[in-house]
Write a protein that binds this DNA or RNA. Structure first.
Lengths: 90, 90
DNA sequence: ACATTATTTCGGTAATTGCCTAAATAACAA
DNA sequence: TTGTTATTTAGGCAATTACCGAAATAATGT
């Protein structure tokens, strides 16, 4: 879970997740949304993948990134535990 | 909001927030829960304060740290937007 | 004024991060 | 094989982070 929070600490990585929330995208398509070099983005992808926030799928020369919803939800639960939002009480 | 996510990226800082969820504590009392030097902890406090996740209150020589619930909840909402969870309902 | 306690700031170092360009790899087509 | 496209890895650099011990600051008591 630590890796997840570290991955979420960078605005570009959060924006990538936001893009993938709509639909899975290949690296090149994601890159068009950011004014930074592709190798830099590739580094961000690897952080997200390492945190298991995204999964990859190769189709020929392109690699498609998918948001891993279950890990996002686990992180959300962890965050709610931190925030003390138990929903029912108070 | 970026500062909040950055602050949450360190496990010690998350643990500090967890402690403060139960009750406000002074720096020294918090320090007893961690095997790290006080200046290091003081740096973590300043990150949390800078992100507005905690507030401080001086009583004589001691400084008490309080969890800032409203910012925690804002962060939670931001996170839910990321995760695509509709959040309020259910 | 001096001492005590609580906390922070200072000064330094090692490790990590974020970014880049250039080079390497992978898949596929001509 | 050679070429093209998509993406990653390598190498390097500047900035930041995390940590520590020592010194400074703040509040208060003697």
């Amino acid at each position: 879970m630590n890796k997840v929070f570290e991955a979420l600490a960078h605005p570009v990585r959060r924006d990538i997740l936001k893009l993938l929330r709509k639909r899975a995208m290949c690296a090149g398509d994601i890159a068009e949304h950011f004014p930074i070099a592709k190798p830099t983005l590739s580094g961000h992808f690897s952080v997200l993948k390492n945190a298991d926030l995204v999964t990859t799928e190769r189709q020929g020369t392109t690699i498609t990134y998918h948001l891993n919803m279950s890990v996002m939800e686990e992180a959300l639960v962890a965050f709610m535990a931190l925030a003390g939002t138990k929903g029912k009480e108070r």
